[in-house]
Write a protein that binds this DNA or RNA. Structure first.
Lengths: 151, 151
DNA sequence: GATACATCGTTGGCAGGGCCAACGAACCTG
DNA sequence: CAGGTTCGTTGGCCCTGCCAACGATGTATC
């Protein structure tokens, strides 16, 4: 089995930016979701809690638009958050199609917990990079992401 | 609905490297898999074809290790590639546990097609960046990926 | 040789994230 | 009122990444 030859990833792959990004995202996702799991949460929960904390009570549709989630996935995530008491759902009196979702005290605390564990995950994700390199990376990624979210 | 306020992603998210990477990987993945779909393929197929082309005939287990795939996923991908005539599967006479998987002429042609469509995908992924920025990005991503594949 | 251990292919299953189609209820416009 | 739209909800699909288990085979040890 020539152990020295193992662990060789095809050059076609390692040279492709899309490969680097998708593979790295596997690690990033694992770090983040392990962190979330420590607090009984998932990525979707964090997205919604952040959105509520920053922009206040909102409808499910708005939450989905801001957090880049499908309406149907918002439903499931909010069901779970409501079960945990992190969120309250009431029908909007001014537009009875809408549900107004609001953050509870428990939700704020949960968000705080998630912030803390997630920060550790960011640190271990970027561990090998210098502060400058991290800035450069965040810059480039932001530029690309902004580009692809418009077109 | 104050259209100007829409499209606002929570600051907590846009500042997190893990968010940037995973979100960008969604776009990268979409570009790549759309490209693959043009040629009736998926990412897994490309990984295996590249590995076979670069390192030659190999067992399924070796293919999985090199392409970063689970053994069970290799089985399915090779079934599909064999159906398309891109690959041939014979049991290794020297070790009857193993299947020797080899690339056919059709497989090489398919790999060529995939290379072409995938190159276009890379281009549109990195479109807004200068050549220098692209190099920097690839560098940083490679560094991070290498780090996380050892630990 | 017989016994344990490891590897290989295969099957079947699960989770997470990203989607889409359809429906009834509600709203808003003409 | 009629037509189109939004909203929440249900149910389903795909891809990628995993894991557990099994029988068959190979290797090493006693």
């Amino acid at each position: 089995m020539y152990l020295g030859l193992m662990e060789q990833t095809p050059a076609r792959l390692v040279g492709k930016p899309s490969w680097l990004i998708t593979q790295l995202s596997v690690h990033a996702h694992r770090l983040a979701s392990d962190a979330f799991a420590e607090a009984n949460a998932r990525g979707y929960h964090y997205r919604i809690l952040s959105s509520l904390d920053e922009f206040g009570t909102a409808s499910q549709a708005d939450l989905g638009r801001r957090s880049n989630m499908d309406r149907s996935d918002v439903v499931a995530a909010i069901n779970e958050l409501a079960e945990q008491g992190c969120v309250e759902r009431t029908t909007d009196p001014g537009d009875r199609r809408r549900n107004l979702v609001s953050l509870t005290k428990a939700g704020e605390q949960q968000l705080g917990r998630l912030d803390r564990v997630l920060d550790k995950a960011q640190e271990s994700l970027l561990e090998p990079l210098t502060a400058e390199s991290r800035d450069t990376l965040v810059c480039l990624l932001s530029e690309l992401l902004a580009h692809h979210q418009r077109g």
